[in-house]
Design a binder for these strands. Sequence first.
RNA 1: GGUGCCAUAGCUCAGUUGGUAGAGCACAGGACUGAAAAUCCUGGUGUCCCUGGUUCAAUUCCAGGUGGCACCA
Length: 313
Amino acid sequence: MKKTLVILLGPTGIGKTDLGIDIALHFKTEIISCDSRQFYREMSIGTASPSKEQLEKVKHHLVNHISVNDYYSASRFEDDFMEMAKKLFAHHNILLMVGGSGLYIDAACGRIDKIPDVDPSVRKKYLDKFQNEGLESIRADLKLLDPDYYKIVDLKNPKRIIRALEICETTGKPYSFFLQKKGKARSFNIIKVGLTMDRQELYRRIDERVDKMIEEGLEEEARKLLEYRNCNALNTVGYKEMFRYFDGEISREKAIELIKRNSRRYAKRQLTWWARDEQIKWFHPREKEEIISYIDNVIRNDEVTKGQRNQEF
RNA sequence: GGUGCCAUAGCUCAGUUGGUAGAGCACAGGACUGAAAAUCCUGGUGUCCCUGGUUCAAUUCCAGGUGGCACCA
């Protein structure tokens, strides 16, 4: 039997964790998490990480496996995921991935190209240049080093420009040279199940969940992590707003309001990311039975899985 | 009950010397291949409280009404 990776994805706060557990129990399998903030073991209330009880119900992988001090990336996640999948597929025909990080899900699906690692000092160099000399300066560098990418990149987005520059400098080749866009073949089938609901309903859930996080002690958790505020891991909704409150810049109420707003905006960006992915079959989270029978049907029907095998961009 | 002030976008408010209006926030849409809960782009969504009057033309001026706030009784 061909191995199958079922991916349960959806915006923040929609109820992936609970439903994922039910689905994993139904298929008698384990969960590989794909949440770029639940990776960090020090963050749990603000990232709505699975609780102890939830972790006991179904074995979860790639949660709490790194520290806020660690460098991590979509590429590293791809490596960790492939290693984990290989191990788990030895005992399971179906694996369940649950998460909301679009780029990381794409990485697991073989949708990002192999690009050489860069030395952090190179990124730092261009970051400094951007901060000291401005956007125009690094734009000019990119125009020189990778004119093709210069034509298509968002020229107002420093992160995109710096990323391309660091690859150009490290490899001596233009960044666009590495963007093959062919996708990597995977030895397993992939079924993508998306969770969605009416925007108002989702926003209400998000607002309620933030209130719950506050009750559970988000403020305390953030206070403990204040010393790591410069780590990328702490550039996260729920923490960055609390840090501003600790600084005296905004009130506690304002911080909570901003956490809600930024969570809503994040959910919207997630939905935009997935909107163009036609492989996703969408459900309301309450449609558990429909989701399970959809997965069953796809696995049974080879014709459908053929389409899912080719991971084109 | 009397006097004064106010009524414009979901909210807070600006404005139009009379030619149907614009800021912030909220919100909506989008981009995004190793920082991605990150980063970036675009967009004003409107019975200008109601009725009448003046006027070629009223959201704007006038009168009345309604609602809110303040003060006086």
